[in-house]
Simulated assay, not measured.
Amino acid sequence: MPEVICTTVYQFPELSDAAKEQARSWYREAAFHDDWWDAVYDDFERICDILGVSLKTRSVRLMGGGIRQKPCIWFSGFSSQGDGACFEATVGHAKGSTREIRSYAPQDQTLHGIAGRLQAAQRQNFYQLHAEVTHRGRYYHEYCMSIDVSRDSPTGQPPAEGSEETVVEALRDLARWLYRQLEAEDDHLTSDEAVEEEIVVNEYTFTDAGRQFG
Rank of each mutant, 00 (worst) to 15 (best):
E164I: 04
S146T: 02
A194C: 09
S153G: 03
D152S: 06
M145P: 08
F87M: 03
G116K: 08
D42L: 08
R58Y: 04
V40Q: 11
A105R: 15
A175N: 05
R136C: 00
I67F: 11
D83C: 07
A170H: 04
Q128L: 14
G65Y: 12
W74F: 09
H135E: 04
L189R: 15
A170C: 01
T166M: 09
Q22M: 08
A85R: 05
L51M: 10
E142P: 02
E165F: 01
Q157I: 05
W36D: 10
E100T: 15
Q109L: 12
G137K: 00
H188F: 15
W177V: 09
A30L: 10
R68C: 08
F206V: 09
V195L: 09
S191M: 11
G82K: 03
A89D: 02
Q81G: 09
P158M: 01
C144W: 00
T57D: 06
E100I: 15
C72P: 06
R68W: 04
Y104H: 15
H33I: 11
E183S: 14
G64F: 04
E14H: 08
G92Q: 09
C6K: 10
Q124F: 13
F206Y: 10
L62P: 08
G82P: 05
D186S: 14
V201M: 05
Y204F: 14
R61E: 15
D173L: 02
I5C: 02
V133R: 00
A23G: 10
R99I: 13
S76T: 14
L55C: 07
T110Q: 11
A194F: 03
K70I: 10
F126P: 07
T134P: 01
G214T: 05
R211F: 03
E132T: 01
L171N: 03
